[in-house]
């Protein structure tokens, strides 16, 4: 497993994409640091990038990578190694690469110009979202036999979680505006990893004061041990489930 991971990781880290992605993130971070004068503004701007761009790139890259490596995966399958190991080595290589890009691209400017706890949370959220969307992408890849279709599904999942779902939430909130909605919205947040990551980030910044009663409710929840445990557990489930199902399908899939 570690051997396979080592080689898969070596290959992916040397790819042009890893470098371009890291440099892109670093440039974004540097320009944000140059423009904004205080850390909470930096956090907010970086968060916007994190919420929109990171899942998109993770989804598209992971799908493309899976299909570009399909022949290599087939070659691996003809070797005396377990299927699950072949799959997990590819998966972890992609997640590690995406995470390292975030840690370096965003982390180095932070080391240079300072960071606070919200930015550390930001990095964690970025890594988690990368893992979640890599999972979606791999699931889409193993379920289809066509690269275009798989990318389509990955993109659809991205659009769903970053746009459609929130529209749906807005509709629900609007329809039931007369009822106390705090617990319901909390539940809705849990059902979307992007929203959950975003709210966790917002709670780190003291702008949660702008969020009124709902904000105060969220703040109370997410600052309790129970709340953090539930949020962490939910995010862990979001990382595990797509990957787990992708692994199951992969083990039964014909190549």
């Amino acid at each position: 497993m570690l051997k396979l991971l080592k080689y898969a990781l070596y290959d992916i880290l040397k790819s042009r994409f890893a470098i371009i992605y890291t440099v892109f993130l670093a440039l974004v971070a540097i320009s944000i640091y140059q423009v904004s004068d205080d850390l909470s503004k930096v956090s907010l701007s970086l968060m916007n990038i994190m919420i929109m761009i990171v899942p998109l790139i993770s989804a598209v890259f992971a799908t493309t990578h899976f299909y570009n490596n399909l022949e290599f995966i087939e070659l691996m399958l003809a070797q005396p190694v377990k299927r699950s190991q072949v799959f997990l080595s590819q998966l972890f290589a992609v997640i590690l690469m995406l995470s390292l890009s975030i840690l370096f691209g965003f982390g180095l400017p932070m080391l240079l110009w300072g960071a606070d706890s919200s930015l550390i949370t930001l990095l964690a959220v970025g890594v988690i979202l990368s893992a979640v969307f890599t999972g979606f992408a791999f699931l889409a890849s193993v379920l289809t036999r066509d690269k275009a279709k798989a990318i389509g599904i990955s993109l659809a999942l991205w659009i769903y979680f970053s746009l459609v779902y929130d529209g749906f939430v807005l509709y629900i909130i609007y329809s039931f505006a007369d009822y106390p909605l705090e617990k319901a919205t909390l539940g809705l947040v849990m059902l979307n990893p992007v929203d959950l990551g975003r709210i966790l980030m917002l709670m780190q910044l003291d702008i949660s004061a702008l969020m009124g009663y709902t904000g105060a409710f969220f703040q109370k929840f997410f600052s309790s041990n129970m709340g953090l445990f539930i949020a962490g557990g939910t995010l862990a489930l979001w990382m595990l489930f797509p990957n787990f199902f992708a692994l199951r399908v992969f083990r039964k899939r014909d190549f």
């Binding site: 919420i51 807005l170 809705l188 975003r198 969020m211 009124g212």
Partner: peptide, 20 residues
């Protein structure tokens, strides 16, 4: 305007949807 009408909509703050 939305937040003023439906305070719970604040949970969508800074989301892609709101930006759009």
């Amino acid at each position: 305007v939305i937040v003023e009408k439906i305070p719970a909509a604040v949970m969508l703050w800074r989301s892609f949807l709101v930006t759009l």
